[in-house]
Amino acid sequence: MELKLSTNIIKDNKELDKEWDTIIIGGGPAGYSAGLYCGRYKLKTLIITKDIGGLLNETDIIDDYPAVENITGPELARRFKSHADKYNVSTLLETVTRIEKKDDENFIVYTSTGKEFISKVVIIATGSQRKRLGVPGENLKGVSYCAECDAPLFKDKIVGVIGGGNSAFHDAEVLAQHAKEVYIIHRRDEFKADPVYIEELKNNEKIKFILNKVVSEIKGHEKVEEVTLQDTKTNEKTTLKLDGLFIAIGLTPLSEIVKDLNVNTDPAGHIIVNDCSKTNVKGLLAAGDVTNQICNLRQIVTAAAQGTTAALSAFLYIKTKKW
């Protein structure tokens, strides 16, 4: 049994100032990297976030963040935060509901408990969330979007994972530690997941592959009992009995909060930024998975990199007033 020794979630409850140089929304790798650099630039910085670490929390072992081998997601999250803390960056655990322009030089940021903050610069680092499947029965209990959280609840059970990318393979691997059988259900016969992952999971006896099939319905009384599978070539329908279903079919950017600011986004909703993380709105920057940047490679290292360029842009803008 593993016991972690430290956490980030304890708040210090000091009253927060109303006015800031930079407010960063989101506490994932992009947000905390931006925080670290803003802190080092001596900008008065507040991170408002629903959680510490963002999607890092949903990853068990990370082995592709350079120079940090084999680390758990939550542990890396703790390190991201404590590094920024060292430079006096404040964190508020709340949800930002809206951002608006106060005047030409300031934004107002509103939170879920009715707090209002004023900031010269806002950095959006809200990341993304898992896409919903959009089929009947998706609201049943036993449908999950977080394998890391819920896998232990499916001990010796039969579960399905929908998807063919890294997230689906990650989920299947975590689930196989608890469940009796894990089915990866994918609409194609090829996977987008990294080859190293595919090889590993093909050798896992608990994991089975169902290819060229989509789930068209999830059925059950109070919880998932079975899914209807539809063949993508023949349209033939079959059923599969399952105790739980994990959905890993991609991510949707969380850019809703900037809707009122007339920010340019791509059709999928990613905020369009330039190499320096600037949006088309003066004083508004964005970094990480919520953006269209860095070759669409949505990883910790790219999110962190963008956080740093956003911080530099914030610093230069506050100093020169030039956008």
């Binding site: 049994m1 304890i10 959680d51 670490g53 997601g73 890391e148 959280c149 896998a151």
Partner: peptide, 13 residues
Amino acid sequence: VTPTCPYCPYMTH
């Protein structure tokens, strides 16, 4: 909760 759930400690706390 489960031991691996990263969002659970917020609620316990």
